[in-house]
């Protein structure tokens, strides 16, 4: 298990592993939005929570198809499925590796991008908290989507179409936490709901992912 995690992290950090692509995408988005919307701090401050959350979501999406596709191509996935590690655990580990290489860096860099978008000062802590609580759900749901489309040609586009609707509740509650935080309102309710979605997804979706993965390997 640890070995699988370490291998996936090592693969991500080695040359060609794609680490940092999502981060760069997130950064570019935060630069492009003001260029498109205009430089007024008031306007940007209003849309900043939404842009940051949508950006995090898209950055996450960008690296999803790598979760299983590479292992599928070189045969590792067949071998993993016959290995003594339960496939459910392997799937969870892969989601964790994806979060550590994509979600966590996004959480850490988000305050800097908040600065670019004139995010109100009160909202920073909630931006970090909401992304910290919400991005694991993005990785787990994305892993399910990646497992669904693993053997398919043109899987990448289909993956976005399948996964993005599943991201809606996370996005709504996550962005809501930040915008309420920005207005100085209580954030308990959306934060609790966001945490609930993450907890539920982490608990249940690996079973669904492992199931569809087995079907795809058959």
């Amino acid at each position: 298990m640890t070995a699988l995690l370490m291998r996936d992290l090592r693969l991500a950090f080695r040359a060609g592993g794609g680490f940092g692509l999502g981060l760069a995408f997130f950064l570019i988005l935060a630069v492009l939005v003001p260029l498109g919307v205009g430089p007024e701090p008031q306007t940007l401050a209003v849309i900043a929570p939404g842009i940051l959350w949508v950006g995090a979501l898209l950055a996450c999406l960008l690296s999803l198809d790598r979760i299983f596709a590479l292992d599928f191509e070189d045969g590792s996935l067949d071998l993993l499925a016959t290995a003594p590690v339960p496939l459910e655990a392997a799937v969870s580990i892969k989601a964790l590796a994806h979060w550590l290489t994509t979600g966590l860096p996004l959480v850490l860099i988000s305050p800097v991008l908040g600065l670019l978008l004139f995010l109100p000062a009160e909202a920073y802590v909630w931006l970090i908290v909401s992304l910290g609580v919400g991005t694991p759900a993005l990785s787990v749901i994305g892993t399910f989507g990646a497992a669904l489309t693993v053997g398919l040609k043109r899987g990448g586009l289909l993956l976005s179409l399948l996964v993005l609707p599943l991201y809606i509740p996370t996005l709504v509650f996550g962005a809501e936490v930040v915008s309420r935080g920005a207005m100085g309102l209580a954030v308990n309710t959306p934060l609790a709901l966001l945490a609930g979605i993450t907890a539920g997804a982490v608990a249940i979706l690996p079973f669904a992912s492992a199931h569809v993965l087995r079907i795809n390997l058959r």
Partner: peptide
Amino acid sequence: DAIAYAAHADGIKATLTVAENLRFWAAIY
């Protein structure tokens, strides 16, 4: 838990060294 399967594809990660590839599978098993 008695079967070890080897297919056409070897499941080798191109960016890992030979020893790393092997150590990974040893750890998994």
